[in-house]
């Protein structure tokens, strides 16, 4: 494969600092004004310097018109899946289908436990995430008449009323790196959402894609059913030969190559100032779109020859 052929989306990754809540909201609005498709916030409920991500997402959704929103990624261990499912569907309904569910298994177990959460091993946490995805989809399945029961190893649901159903098919995107989590992504998720600082090499991306693809096929799914998104960092400047360190045109070339060679179709920039967000939305995004469209068209006509 890679290049799974998805349309391209561009987003921002905004630190949800509670020191100046209105600046955080303003950056999300800046993202919308800059033409970005998505604004996202990390979720570390044990972090006292942050706003509660769920509250912030709901508030920002009401203060924006067009842009889509997601946690990046929502911390499952401190957000019970049945509650989360209802809240996600509610936000999707209120916002007219603008919510996506980036979800993570949790990693900072000392902090999770300190908050009163349950400590799991990394392996258990992946299993728990698998159960949680089933519960979330079960709650969303409001058309199903039967009361909802799950008797899992990690979560129990005892005859809950299902619903509400979200306004659109909310994408469940997983922050995954290790094979077990990547296989879960291929089997059950709608998106893969790793972060550049945790990725060691391009080979690692290729291997991860292969793992996801194989798991998808095994589960009877198309590999293209899983969108690949990437949280990236970088800076705009005079430039050098490093990744995402240079003028916007250089960023566009580098990201277009990632789409065409490694299958990413979403780029979310970690940025906390309006100028960077604007450059990304107004200069980089159209550049990548143009380069990718041109190359995809060439490949199609090349294949048809």
């Amino acid at each position: 494969m890679p290049d799974y052929g998805h349309d391209l989306i561009f987003g921002s990754f905004i630190i949800p600092a509670n020191a100046a809540p209105h600046e955080v909201v303003a950056l999300a609005q800046e993202s919308e004004a800059a033409g970005l498709d998505l604004a996202t916030f990390q979720d570390h409920p044990y972090q006292s310097a942050f706003l509660d991500t769920w509250t912030l997402l709901s508030y920002v959704a009401a203060r924006t018109e067009r842009i889509r929103l997601s946690g990046n990624v929502i911390n499952l261990p401190l957000r019970p899946p049945a509650v989360l499912a209802r809240a996600a569907a509610s936000l999707d309904l209120l916002s007219g289908g603008r919510f996506e569910l980036g979800l993570g298994a949790g990693g900072f177990w000392d902090a999770i436990e300190a908050m009163g959460g349950r400590r799991l091993t990394p392996g258990q946490a992946v299993d728990a995430l698998g159960e949680a995805i089933d519960i979330i989809r079960g709650i969303w399945d409001a058309g199903e008449r039967s009361r909802f029961r799950v008797d899992g190893t990690y979560y129990r649901v005892e005859g809950a009323k299902r619903g509400p159903a979200p306004a659109h098919d909310i994408g469940i995107w997983l922050g995954a790196y290790k094979p077990k989590m990547l296989r879960l992504t291929g089997a059950k998720a709608d998106g893969w959402l790793p972060s550049l600082p945790y990725i060691q090499s391009l080979d690692e991306i290729a291997e991860a894609n292969a793992t996801i693809d194989a798991a998808a096929v095994e589960a009877g799914r198309e590999p293209a059913a899983i969108r690949r998104l990437f949280n990236v960092t970088g800076r705009f400047g005079q430039g050098g030969d490093r990744f995402l360190d240079g003028p916007p045109e250089q960023w566009a070339e580098q990201l277009a190559a990632l789409t065409l060679e490694y299958g990413f179709s979403g780029y979310i920039l970690m940025a906390d100032d309006a100028a960077t967000i604007r450059t990304f939305g107004e200069q980089v995004a159209p550049g990548v779109r143009e380069l990718v469209a041109r190359e995809r068209a060439a490949r199609v006509s090349g294949a048809g020859r």
């Binding site: 769920w54 509250t55 912030l56 709901s58 508030y59 959704a61 009401a62 509650v83 209802r86 809240a87 569907a89 509610s90 936000l91 309904l93 209120l94 409001a142 809950a160 009323k161 299902r162 619903g163 509400p164």
Partner: peptide, 12 residues
């Protein structure tokens, strides 16, 4: 039950 989540609604 099965309705909109009150906290999300309140924040909105």
């Amino acid at each position: 039950p099965g309705g909109l989540d009150p906290w999300t609604l309140l924040s909105w």
